[in-house]
């Protein structure tokens, strides 16, 4: 299970570490605080999500579904934090980002194209609602 077969070139790239040597000390020490901080922000935003659900945005903006939209925006923000910091997507290799772009595009397609179904249903083919 050694990695000694890797050509010296790679080590020069700085991509790998010698088996025993402590690596990137300083950098990670710095991050520890950041991780706790992000955890704290996430907890605060959980509280905010709960609080927001008590506010009747539909009344406020005279519309429909605003609470859902705002709730989802907050959730998306939290998810971005988890992704960027905990999952190290900030500064992650372009290859991983490429996978993500494609995946997100296809999920979006799945969501929105299936919903097109409700855009102009042919009369009498879906049951009435609203």
């Amino acid at each position: 299970m050694s990695q000694s077969h890797d050509h010296g070139k790679e080590v020069a790239h700085g991509a790998s570490h010698d088996s025993g040597a402590p690596a990137d000390h300083a950098q990670h020490d710095m991050h520890l605080g950041l991780y706790w901080g992000i955890g704290g922000v996430l907890v605060v935003f959980t509280a905010i999500t709960v609080w927001l659900s008590y506010v009747d945005f539909d009344k406020m903006f005279a519309g429909h579904g605003w609470n859902i939209i705002i709730g989802m925006i907050v959730a998306t923000f939290k998810v971005c934090l988890v992704g960027a910091i905990f999952m190290h997507l900030k500064g992650e290799k372009p290859l991983v980002w490429k996978f993500l772009y494609f995946t997100l595009f296809f999920v979006a397609g799945l969501f929105f194209l299936t919903l097109l179904h409700y855009v102009d249903p042919i009369f009498g083919t879906t049951h009435a609602h609203h």
């Binding site: 296809f106 397609g109 194209l113 097109l116 179904h117 855009v119 102009d120 249903p121 042919i122 083919t125 879906t126």
Partner: peptide
């Protein structure tokens, strides 16, 4: 990934779709 509903023309999903 974005052509699948051509199998569903008969479902009455609507002209726009």
């Amino acid at each position: 990934f974005v052509v699948w509903a051509h199998h569903m023309y008969m479902t009455g999903m609507g002209a726009k779709v």
